[in-house]
Structure formats: C-alpha cells, structure tokens
C-alpha cells in the first residue's frame, strides 16, 4: 500500500514540476465529485463519464482560457484526485483480502494468499498503466500535446482502476 502510494506520488512529482508553482489554477474537485456521487446512486457502471469534469471547468476558467497548457495543469490536479481515490479503494480491498485470508486459513487450494494476489494484480496494473501511457505519449511524440495525452491517460486508467476496485470489492 505504502509502496504503491510512493510510486504514484513520485510519478506525480516527476511529471508535474510546474504544478507546485502553478498560479491561479482554478481547480475545484466539486464538479467531478458531485457527478461521482450522483452516478453512485443511479449508474454505478458508468462513473467514468465523470472523469475530467472538474479539469474541464478549471481549464475554461484559467487565465488565458482553455489551452493545451491550462488543460494539462488542470488534468494533473484531476489525476491527484483519482490517485487518492485509488489508494483509498486499494486500502479497503487490502483489508478485505486480509479478512478473507484469515477465514480460509489452512483451507486454501494453494499457498498464495489473497493479499499477495492483490499485490500482484496491482503491480501488474502499474506496469500496464506505465506501458500504455508511455506509448500514448510517444504517439504524440513528446510535445505539449504529448504531455496532455500522457496525464489524461494516467487519469483515465487510474480512475478505471479505482472504479474496478470499488465495484468489485471481493464480489463478482
């Protein structure tokens, strides 16, 4: 858990040195959060439509208006929101996996615990996320659009994984 948190946080810092000094970036997570709250009651399967709501509002409200630059800064903040959500959901599933491991102690068909399987899955996800987003950035050849595509990719995949963990908490 800690390890994953560190990995993603380091990724954020390396990626977004400008974020710390970004001035007047009017990012407010409310739009995305209220969308998520609404979808949780009505349409749990399609929560991904909420991803980027606050970032778009933020870019529109930025000094100089909507641009690749403002959208990249705003999407970076949105990434932070979903990275945090992923860590919260992961911690929940980690707790449930530990409970399950206690229940089936000694009756499991093999020696791998649910906790270990969860860690393996999450590591595989991180490798998949990194390979996918590296490739998407390369598709746009590292320019300013490439940076936006990259942070958008990270945000989308991170949100997907947070929702996957949330919706499937040791269920179907």
């Amino acid at each position: 858990m800690m390890r994953i948190w560190i990995i993603t946080s380091v990724a954020t810092m390396v990626l977004l040195p400008q974020l710390a000094v970004a001035q007047d970036m009017p990012y407010d997570p409310a739009a995305t959060q209220s969308c998520l709250a609404e979808m949780a009651d009505t349409d749990m399967e399609n929560t991904n439509v909420c991803v980027g709501r606050s970032a778009e509002q933020c870019a529109d409200a930025s000094v100089g208006g909507f641009s690749t630059r403002s959208m990249t800064a705003c999407m970076s903040a949105e990434y932070g929101l979903f990275d945090e959500m992923l860590n919260v959901e992961y911690a929940k599933v980690r707790g449930l996996a530990a409970d399950l491991d206690k229940q089936v102690n000694g009756t499991s068909f093999d020696d791998v615990s649910m906790g270990d399987r969860l860690v393996q899955m999450q590591r595989a996800w991180i490798a998949y996320r990194d390979a996918t987003c590296a490739y998407e950035r390369r598709q746009f050849d590292g320019g300013t659009i490439g940076e936006l595509v990259y942070i958008d990719c990270l945000t989308t995949l991170t949100a997907d994984q947070a929702f996957r963990l949330q919706n499937s908490v040791l269920g179907l």
Binding site: S108, F109, R117, M121, R123, A124, Y128, A131, Y135, L170
Partner: peptide, 28 residues
C-alpha cells in the same frame, strides 16, 4: 511506436491474468 504498443499489450495480458486469477481465487 510498434514496439511500445506490443509492450503495452503484453503488460495488459499480464494485468488481465493477475486480475482474473485473483477473482477466481476469491471464490475458490
């Protein structure tokens, strides 16, 4: 770009297997 796409696809396959194996074992 083709190599990166291939790497991404291989990483996805590993993720799919880890994810689905985990789910299978939840209901062992």
């Amino acid at each position: 770009l083709k190599i990166r796409l291939r790497d991404a696809q291989r990483a996805w396959i590993a993720f799919r297997d880890a994810e689905c194996t985990m789910r299978y074992h939840q209901w062992i």
